[in-house]
């Protein structure tokens, strides 16, 4: 590293003296020192290179484009956020209104209980069918015809079950 520091004139006087004494006695280092000096002169001679004319305008144009792009992005986010907020308020308002309506109307509560029961039955039916189908497929993976038969049977059973559900009874208001 001494040679590099010597080139930048950063050696102390004793270090510099020792460096030059070494150069006088070492042909290899002397040769390298000459190359380094040549390199130093070449680097010193190289000019500063500037951009083509109009650089400031090109930067400004790019800056303007980037700012416009950010503004568009920000506008889009505000729009999406606003829309979500409005819809959240609408859904919450509707939920509150339904809850209030149910709380003050016993007949509506009966309708709701019946509806929830029906939905529960449908969900249970669907889950049961899917589980049965999965088991059937696992058991008869090697027999495609059996799998097809079981699938058709399950669909038919599901259809019959839905048809056999007793019709809903409308509660009398009297």
């Amino acid at each position: 590293m001494t040679m590099s520091l010597a080139l930048d004139a950063l050696l102390s006087p004793p270090e510099q003296q020792a460096f030059h004494q070494h150069l006088a006695s070492c042909a290899q280092c002397r040769s390298r020192w000459l190359t380094w000096q040549q390199l130093d002169r070449m680097l010193m001679a190289a000019p500063l290179v500037g951009p083509a004319p109009g650089f400031v305008a090109r930067v400004d144009q790019r800056l303007r484009r980037r700012q416009a792009s950010r503004e568009r992005l920000l506008g889009g986010l505000v729009l999406i956020g606003g829309t979500l907020l409005v819809w959240t308020l609408v859904v919450l308002s509707a939920a509150v209104a339904v809850a209030l309506w149910l709380a003050t109307n016993p007949t509506a509560q009966l309708h709701l209980a019946e509806l929830l029961g029906f939905v529960g039955q449908l969900v249970a039916l669907a889950v049961g069918n899917l589980l049965a189908l999965r088991s059937g497929l696992a058991a008869s993976a090697a027999a495609p015809l059996v799998t097809l038969f079981l699938s058709v049977l399950l669909v038919a059973l599901a259809f019959l079950w839905l048809r056999l559900i007793p019709p809903r009874q409308t509660p009398s208001n009297s």
Binding site: A6, A9, Q16, H20, Q21, L23, W33, Q37, D40, M44
Partner: peptide, 13 residues
Amino acid sequence: PRVSRAIAHAPLA
């Protein structure tokens, strides 16, 4: 004007 440092091109002893 960019560079004005003194170059340590010391003569070889």
